[in-house]
C-alpha cells in the first residue's frame, strides 16, 4: 500500500449544465520518503489537485488515501506551502510561524514553542528578520517564511504548490537547494507541483506530467535516476538528464499541440470598412 494514494479521482465544479470537469481519472501512488514532481501548464488544474490532497477540497468521486485512510479534512501531518505564500500580513515572521507551531503542538510550553520558531526561522536563515512584517521582506524571503511555517509543524509530508513560481531565477535556485537540503535531512515525503521541467528534474525522484484541463489527467511518469546530491552545472552535461528532459518537454509540447488543435475554432471576421474613408 502506498503512502499517498489517489484512486480514480474526479473533481468538477458547478452543477447541471454549468459543470466543469477539472480533473478526470487521476491515479497516483507516492511511496514514503519519495520526492514526486507534477509538471503541468498553468490552468491545468494543478492547484485543484493539491487542494484535494491536502484536504481543502473533496473529490467529486474516487478516493484520496493518506496512509491507508481517506482524507476528509486538513491535517498537521501534511504541511502545505502555497503558491502565493499566504502569510498573514498583520503578523511578524515569528508570529506567523508561532501561530502554526502553537496549533501543531498544543501541549508544549511557550518557551519550547518559541525555541522551535527560532530554530526554523534560523534554518531558512531569516533570524535577523524575525520581527519584521511580511511586507518588509522580499518575495524570496516571504517564501522562505512559508517554508519555515510549513516545516515547523513537523509534517510527515510536504505539499508544495508552485512554491517558487513567482521568484527570479537566482532566488529560485537558492531556494531549491534549501528545500532539497531540508528534505534530505529527514527524508520526508514530498510532492512538488511546478511548471518548470528543469526544477522538477533537479529536485524529484519521479516526474508526472498533468495533461491540461478540462478533464485533466496524469500522463506517464518519468523516473529521474540521477545520483543525489545533484549538481546543477554538472547535470547539464549528464546524458540521462538531457534524455529525460527532452522526453518530458516533447511530451508536454505534444499534448499542448493537441490541446491547441482541439480548441482551434475558426472565427470569420466580418468584412467591414470605414464609411467615409479617403485613401
Amino acid at each position: 500500500m502506498a503512502y499517498l494514494e489517489l484512486n480514480n479521482v474526479y473533481k468538477s465544479y458547478g452543477t447541471g449544465e454549468n459543470v466543469t470537469n477539472v480533473l478526470s481519472n487521476i491515479n497516483l501512488n507516492i511511496e514514503e520518503g519519495e520526492f514526486v514532481a507534477i509538471v503541468g501548464f498553468t490552468g491545468s488544474g494543478k492547484t485543484t489537485l493539491v487542494n484535494l490532497i491536502n484536504g481543502l477540497l473533496k473529490p467529486t468521486s474516487g478516493e484520496v488515501l493518506f496512509k491507508g485512510l481517506p482524507v476528509v479534512d486538513t491535517s498537521h501531518e501534511r504541511g502545505v506551502i502555497f503558491q502565493n505564500y499566504s502569510l498573514l500580513p498583520w503578523l511578524t515572521v515569528g508570529q506567523n510561524v508561532y501561530m502554526a507551531v502553537k496549533e501543531a503542538f498544543p501541549k508544549e510550553s511557550k518557551a519550547v514553542l518559541k525555541k522551535r520558531v527560532a530554530d526554523y526561522v534560523e534554518m531558512v536563515s531569516l533570524s535577523p528578520a524575525i520581527n519584521k512584517r511580511p511586507k518588509e521582506l522580499s518575495g524570496g524571503m516571504r517564501q522562505r517564511v512559508a517554508v519555515a511555517r510549513a516545516l515547523a509543524m513537523n509534517p510527515e509530508m510536504i505539499i508544495m504548490d508552485e512554491p517558487l513560481g513567482a521568484l527570479d531565477a537566482l532566488t529560485r535556485g537558492n531556494l531549491q537547494d534549501e528545500i532539497l537540503n531540508i528534505w534530505s535531512k529527514d527524508k520526508r515525503t514530498a510532492l512538488l507541483i511546478t511548471n518548470d521541467v528543469d526544477e522538477g528534474i533537479y529536485m524529484a525522484d519521479r516526474i508526472i506530467p498533468l495533461k491540461p484541463g478540462p478533464n485533466a489527467t496524469l500522463g506517464p511518469e518519468f523516473k529521474i535516476d540521477i545520483e543525489r546530491p545533484r549538481d546543477k552545472t554538472a547535470m547539464n552535461d549528464n546524458p540521462s538528464f538531457k534524455k529525460t528532459r527532452n522526453a518530458i518537454i516533447e511530451y508536454l509540447m505534444d499534448i499542448g499541440d493537441q490541446r491547441k488543435s482541439v480548441s482551434e475554432v475558426e472565427y470569420v471576421l466580418p468584412e467591414i470598412a470605414p464609411k467615409s474613408f479617403v485613401a
Partner: peptide
C-alpha cells in the same frame, strides 16, 4: 480566501480563526 485556507491548513480553532485571521483582515 488564501487566509481562510491558511487557517484551515494550520487547523486553527474557531476562536483563533476569528481573532487571529478574520478580524485583523477585516479591520
Amino acid at each position: 480566501k488564501d487566509y481562510i485556507n491558511v487557517a484551515k491548513v494550520l487547523k486553527l480553532g474557531t476562536f483563533q480563526k476569528v481573532f487571529k485571521v478574520i478580524l485583523p483582515s477585516s479591520l
